[in-house]
Simulated assay, not measured.
Amino acid sequence: MKRNVKRIFWITLLLLFSSTKVFAAVYVVHDMEERVARSFVFELDRRLLLDVSLVPVRSHAFLENSAQKLKEDDLIVTVGVKSAQQVCSSLSKGVVVAVFIGKEEFQKAQFDCSVPSSAVFSGAPLDTRFALLKAIWFDRKPLAVLHSDHLLIDQESMSRQAKEYGFELNFHHTELDRLSVLKSVNFVLEESAMIFSLVDSELYQNTLAQDILKLLFYKRQVMVGPFLPFVKAGALLAIDSDTEVKLQVLTNHITVWHSSRVLLPAQYPDKLRVSFNPHLIKAYGIVPPSAAFLRDEYGLCSDTQCD
């Protein structure tokens, strides 16, 4: 009897260990300040209901030390466009999920990626942006689209989308030094009254973005911003998702990968927020849609009423 009980115990223990899934590593590759990186990893870990440890590591350290140790099913979360570009162009194993990256930035990084990759996009889909703009902006001069080499843009496809809403796009590539950027802004505004910005982290970094918005202010012209903070700095409006919403989507990507080894497609978060600049709205005589109309017509929450 005792022998049978002992045998049952060992068989049960063996089955338990054999059915326990061993999760691969999740590396969080970044170039953030350590304080910001710790906060990001803490918030992500708090949402993950998985027996998995997150390994935060700077891009250069990851490429020098960790990349060679990767297994086929290891997951690498890249934070920002630079990390995505560096990791994607160097890996031969693992899978990548990029966050805090624009769609066109991701497409450029993905072009050089030799491993499966996905993303949680910043900003908002073009259709959503064009639809809202059509309702409040009646100047049909071409919308100026400045962009750097860090984007992969399908101009033909974007132009078709814009045309469906009555807009024409004027694309202009620019180098990233201050003089070239300001010259480009002056050039495109000869035919346009508005810059329709894409998420271009290198072009719209802090100092360059401030210079562009100052120039627009003096010229009495405006920008549809790539991120919500641009509205406070002088953009007319912006549509984006906040960090919490991005983390929720990222958590889902990680969970699905670890439960089924299925990499979800790159996507924008469902919950998007629109912010209007009250001074520019008043100056241009624009009547912004109500919170209920934004929600029902465009699936957006307003900056003042977003749970």
Rank of each mutant, 00 (worst) to 15 (best):
residue 128 T to K: 13
residue 129 R to Y: 00
residue 136 I to L: 03
residue 137 W to G: 11
residue 137 W to P: 09
residue 142 P to R: 12
residue 143 L to V: 14
residue 143 L to Y: 13
residue 146 L to V: 06
residue 148 S to L: 07
residue 149 D to R: 04
residue 154 D to H: 09
residue 155 Q to S: 13
residue 156 E to H: 10
residue 158 M to W: 03
residue 160 R to L: 14
residue 164 E to L: 00
residue 166 G to N: 02
residue 168 E to C: 03
residue 169 L to I: 10
residue 170 N to W: 01
residue 172 H to D: 02
residue 176 L to M: 12
residue 177 D to Y: 02
residue 178 R to C: 04
residue 178 R to L: 15
residue 180 S to K: 00
residue 181 V to P: 07
residue 181 V to C: 06
residue 181 V to M: 06
residue 183 K to A: 15
residue 184 S to Q: 03
residue 184 S to M: 03
residue 185 V to C: 14
residue 187 F to D: 09
residue 187 F to Q: 15
residue 188 V to N: 12
residue 191 E to L: 10
residue 193 A to C: 09
residue 201 S to V: 08
residue 203 L to F: 03
residue 203 L to R: 00
residue 205 Q to V: 04
residue 206 N to S: 15
residue 206 N to M: 11
residue 207 T to C: 09
residue 208 L to S: 10
residue 208 L to H: 11
residue 208 L to E: 06
residue 211 D to C: 02
residue 212 I to R: 02
residue 212 I to G: 05
residue 214 K to E: 05
residue 215 L to N: 14
residue 220 R to L: 14
residue 220 R to Q: 15
residue 221 Q to S: 14
residue 225 G to S: 07
residue 226 P to Q: 12
residue 228 L to T: 03
residue 228 L to D: 02
residue 229 P to T: 07
residue 231 V to A: 06
residue 233 A to E: 15
residue 234 G to L: 11
residue 234 G to R: 13
residue 237 L to R: 07
residue 238 A to Y: 11
residue 238 A to E: 01
residue 239 I to Q: 10
residue 239 I to M: 08
residue 247 L to M: 11
residue 251 T to Y: 06
residue 255 T to A: 02
residue 257 W to F: 08
residue 258 H to P: 00
residue 259 S to G: 05
residue 259 S to E: 14
residue 260 S to A: 15
residue 260 S to W: 13
residue 266 A to S: 06
residue 267 Q to F: 08
residue 267 Q to G: 08
residue 267 Q to D: 09
